[in-house]
């Protein structure tokens, strides 16, 4: 039983419960790794970072290309000249939404979109599930294709 003794809003509690289910529905994904001490100024508790990892999970086999994490803890090892980082997968925030976004503000197509733009719902070709430049993407459901998959 989760308890929020000092919240009086049912909608806020429902929001927190839903957030908890989404964040922990598939475990509690974290990454742990050391980086050189030179990262001192760039990393702090609760800061976001993006991870490029060829071995990261990706249906296309492309690895993680700048997946967002945020920092749960930092362990400064001055003798070892490194910082041990524990990062929490931030994808739980992004996968809650499929937002088409403001088309007057966002870049008009995928290839010219910046990374923040790409968090919005650019739709690719629903037949081949790829954008014009060959990158994989999301399409609105194509029932016929889903059966094939």
């Amino acid at each position: 039983m989760r308890q929020y003794p000092f919240i009086i809003s049912a909608t806020l509690v429902q929001e927190l419960v839903t957030e908890g289910l989404i964040q922990y529905g598939r475990g509690d994904p974290k990454v742990r790794f050391p980086v050189p001490l030179h990262f001192f100024d760039e990393l702090d508790i609760f800061y976001n970072f993006r991870l490029q990892d060829l071995m990261g999970l990706s249906s296309s086999g492309a690895g993680e290309q700048g997946r967002y994490y945020y920092i749960e803890s930092l362990d400064y090892d001055f003798m070892g000249d490194k910082i041990n980082v524990v990062g929490i997968d931030l994808q739980y925030i992004l996968r809650r939404y499929f937002i088409l976004g403001d088309e007057t503000v966002l870049a008009s197509n995928w290839s010219s979109a910046g990374e923040p733009d790409r968090m919005f719902g650019y739709l690719c070709d629903e037949d081949i599930l790829r954008f014009a430049d060959g990158e994989p993407g999301k399409a609105l459901v194509n029932e016929g294709l889903l059966e094939d998959y």
Partner: peptide
């Protein structure tokens, strides 16, 4: 600069939350 770990901590997976407030 050293070992890279990616953990999923599936023991902590949650399917249902009851909450009091």
């Amino acid at each position: 600069v050293d070992r890279f770990e990616r953990k999923y901590n599936m023991r902590d997976a949650i399917s249902l939350i009851n909450a009091e407030f």
